[in-house]
């Protein structure tokens, strides 16, 4: 049989190290998601603000973040801040900053989209009933938007987890880096390790993201109409 080199992972603590690398990537995405969701909710509400200036500012922010590849943003924060501001950010810190900036923008846009999908008369009716702005959002608008928003934000979470694979490029030791190290260390004994190890990395990413996208698909179907 063809030697696929998966056996490398069963030597010593190699597989645990790989999972540790996965955890580093997951930690970055979990922290970023936890920060992005509340910030995104706020941004989304501000994006539907009546003030043209506020809307314009957030529009520019969203478009600027959106048009750049995430890797470019990572480079800008990781290398750029060192030079321009004299900060010495760790790779992990830089990636959290980028993912929060990016996640907030994307989440904000999702919130904006679901907010404007609520018919205007809902706002007007609750105003007519004498509700304050806060009450209107809390009791009338938010419950209606959640159904539309939840599947979309779960999809954003999977996108964020997938994007964390990029942090390798600014020197964070995550799963792909650990995989490379394992392959390098076993170059002599197991020449086909690159196939097996990267296959396992591929499967692990799939196993992490797949349940989320299934859940999003399920909720979307359930709440349709």
């Amino acid at each position: 049989m063809l030697d696929l080199g998966i056996d490398v992972l069963f030597k010593g603590t190699n597989f645990l190290r790989l999972l540790g690398g996965l955890w580093v990537a997951m930690r970055i995405s979990l922290i970023s998601i936890a920060l992005s969701i509340p910030l995104g909710l706020l941004t989304g509400v501000l994006m539907t603000s009546k003030s043209k200036i506020i809307r314009f500012i957030f529009r520019v922010y969203l478009e600027m973040i959106r048009i750049m590849p995430q890797l470019v943003l990572l480079f800008l924060v990781y290398f750029g801040t060192t030079r321009a501001l004299g900060w010495n950010l760790s790779g992990e810190m830089a990636s959290i900053i980028v993912f929060v900036l990016w996640g907030t923008a994307e989440m904000g846009d999702l919130v904006r989209g679901s907010l404007i999908s609520v018919p205007k008369h809902q706002y007007e009716s609750s105003e007519a009933l004498g509700m304050t702005k806060g009450q209107t959002y809390l009791y009338i608008i938010l419950p209606q938007t959640v159904r539309r928003l939840l599947p979309l934000s779960i999809n954003l979470i999977t996108r964020m987890i997938k994007t964390t694979s990029l942090v390798l490029m600014i020197g964070v030791v995550e799963m792909l880096k650990v995989a490379q190290q394992i392959i390098e260390a076993n170059r002599m004994t197991s020449q086909n390790a690159a196939f097996g190890v990267f296959l396992v990395v591929f499967i692990l990413y799939f196993l992490v993201c797949w349940p989320f996208s299934r859940l999003a698909g399920f909720l979307e179907k359930k709440w349709q109409g």
Partner: peptide, 17 residues
């Protein structure tokens, strides 16, 4: 459900094996 980077690594480094 997998990142492009992982797919590329698999194709570029894994497939030759």
């Amino acid at each position: 459900n997998t990142p492009l980077l992982v797919q590329l690594f698999f194709i570029y480094y894994g497939f030759p094996k």
